[in-house]
């Protein structure tokens, strides 16, 4: 008990004694703000559950996700110990869902690492440098923005070949322009701030200013945008899977599962509905999380 209260005091100290304490204290403050947002917490809990399900899929699954049993095809949920029923090839949907979570999270993580980073680099360089650098980079961004996202992703996948990695690459290549726009807009407001003038006067070069002074201020708005876009990314991935250009059968990717269930949707609703609900749940969780993060990370709120 006393150890707990002293830890709390240490974290909330008005005058931190070390760099580590100051950093942990700032994190703890953000966590307190985040925790007070019930919906965001709900989103976080759903996500943690999905991630745990993905990690422990081999332990939680009741069947092999690839094992076919044509004698047991299209069983309703609950029949014969198949918790969520079976699909057209007699594979257990519950087990496939668990393994599919791995693929979804894999896609999300890859896209979340590639697209915002690319957008951040391009946007901040354009915004800080200005002049013709800005012109060239922003017109390039405009070209990418001019195409509908799914169509462009389709074109990339068609050119690169179907498969989950190429789908991720295609989604990333189509998802970065909005991040570049946001990062540029943020940079434009930051670059003429006095604290940037001050560090310039201290002799810092453009690379140092961009990476150490501008990035930390852009990242919060990008992170919020990423979590809000996650739903869209998962849906695009699912859409590509549905069109047969993402994950290939027999991979238990959720979009591909819906695509396979489509043929039976009128008679055997669960085959398409259950992976659809899973996509819905993860999208919703990311949206709620993004909303909560906005409250925590908004630099304007930080001044209070």
């Amino acid at each position: 008990m006393s150890a707990e209260t002293s830890l709390k005091e240490w974290l909330l100290a008005e005058e931190p004694q070390s760099r580590r304490q100051a950093r942990w204290g700032a994190w703890y403050q953000s966590w307190l703000t985040f925790r007070s947002n019930t919906l965001a917490m709900a989103g976080l809990i759903i996500l943690v559950l999905i991630i745990l399900a993905a990690i422990f899929a081999p332990l939680l699954a009741t069947d092999d996700p690839f094992a076919q049993d044509l004698g047991q095809r299209l069983l309703a949920p609950g029949v014969d110990g198949h918790l969520l029923g079976t699909d057209s090839l007699g594979r257990d949907i519950y087990s496939r869902l668990l393994y599919g979570a791995r693929i979804s999270i894999y896609i999300v993580l890859l896209v979340a690492m590639v697209a915002p980073l690319l957008g951040l680099v391009i946007g901040t360089i354009a915004g800080y440098m200005g002049g013709w650098t800005d012109e060239v980079l922003m017109r390039l961004t405009d070209i990418f923005l001019a195409f509908p996202r799914l169509i462009l992703a389709l074109a990339f996948v068609a050119a690169l070949g179907a498969g989950i990695e190429n789908a991720v690459l295609a989604i990333s290549l189509t998802a970065w322009p909005p991040y570049a726009r946001i990062a540029r807009a943020e940079t434009l407001t930051i670059r003429s701030a006095d604290f940037i003038h001050a560090i310039r006067l201290q002799g810092a070069g453009p690379i140092r200013i961009i990476t150490r002074h501008i990035w930390p201020l852009c990242i919060s708005s990008l992170m919020i945008r990423v979590t809000l876009d996650m739903a869209g990314i998962i849906l695009t991935a699912a859409g590509l899977g549905f069109l047969g250009l993402g994950a290939q059968p027999p991979s238990p990717e959720w979009g591909a599962m819906i695509s396979e269930g489509r043929k039976y949707i009128l008679d055997y609703w669960w085959v398409a509905t259950i992976p659809g609900l899973a996509i819905f749940a993860i999208s919703l969780a990311f949206n709620l999380l993004g909303d909560g993060l906005r409250d925590v990370l908004d630099p304007k709120e930080g001044g209070a």
């Binding site: 760099r19 100051a22 701030a193 003038h197 560090i199 002074h213 201020l217 630099p299 930080g302 001044g303």
Partner: peptide, 9 residues
């Protein structure tokens, strides 16, 4: 209020 980076100690 404008001359110090808001995220730096």
């Amino acid at each position: 209020y404008a001359s110090l980076h808001p995220r730096q100690t």
